[in-house]
Design a protein around this nucleic acid. Structure first.
Lengths: 153, 153
DNA sequence: CAAAAGTATACTTGTACTATAGACTTTATG
DNA sequence: CATAAAGTCTATAGTACAAGTATACTTTTG
């Protein structure tokens, strides 16, 4: 049940973009280079990923000197499920239980297929988490842990 | 979050092996050929899969004429998690949250990594289902659905 | 206009998934 | 005891996809 590197890097980048909305700054714009350095990701690879996310409407960007990326919507309105699906495809382990991209699998009878029942549960469990967790939820949770550990920044 | 064909076929086969313990028969022995036909799986590919499962101690087999495969333990003592891990590896979407096969990922601080927290939840949700569902549970559930739909066999 | 940044697309490389092949061993039975 | 029916084992091939590189282009600011 692996998360691809694309998905991993994209999620990390989005969390980072949601994570440091410095009080004064209206748009926390961040450059590819900065993200790639902080998260140890190949800048060129990250470029592709952010572009995909941009074309999916989750990021905006500004070209030219002083440009960079920023979230297209407030972090409380972007779910991890949206990001995940954009980069890694359907959440369902098996096509015949996918809500967003259903396709029949080869079993004789879907209704009585035991594997399908269980994988449906798995799909729902994953989707429940990813679709109900926003970027804001993640940064909030990070903040709580930091506070508990006594870390300032 | 895909289930591989190997995992899918293996799970299907195990569910089938658990599924038809005809009253009189002590060991519901089934041949590769029969499974491959019923489930539309390449017999040769299935062979490998069942062999892997056998070497993992979940199946026993009998060679020669009238031979075949049968569950090594009662279906109530084999979980889907065991089968899944044998064929598809760790359940965790990302190595740093794997209970059975932990490895550090590249993030600067695991404790405060937002992605890790969420993926930990996902791992637990998946493992909760797979490790707490036995083959017997699956066949029981299939039976319930069949009954509800008024299907005899 | 030069430099800094994003855009776009094509290419490469490696690995893992999905098989397929073939030679071998064990067992029942006529 | 020979034969056929079954499982065992290992190697290999083809494909797809992931992950990363490369290159040429556009926009913006100073």
């Amino acid at each position: 049940m692996r998360l691809s590197k694309r998905g991993e890097y994209g999620l990390r980048a989005m969390i980072m973009l949601a994570g440091t909305p410095e009080p004064g700054t209206p748009l926390p714009m961040v450059q590819i280079k900065e993200i790639s350095q902080r998260e140890q990701i190949s800048a060129k690879f990250l470029e592709q990923i952010l572009l995909t996310l941009k074309n999916a409407g989750m990021l905006h960007s500004k070209m030219g000197v002083g440009g960079g990326y920023y979230l297209a919507r407030p972090s409380s309105e972007i779910t991890l499920g949206q990001i995940f699906r954009t980069l890694d495809g359907p959440v369902a382990p098996i096509k015949c239980v996918s809500q967003m991209a259903y396709e029949p699998c080869g079993c004789p009878d879907e209704q009585t297929c035991g594997l399908r029942m269980v994988m449906g549960d798995v799909r729902n469990a994953i989707a429940d988490i990813l679709d109900n967790t926003t970027l804001a939820d993640v940064t909030k949770r990070q903040g709580a842990v930091r506070k508990k550990l006594g870390i300032k920044k």
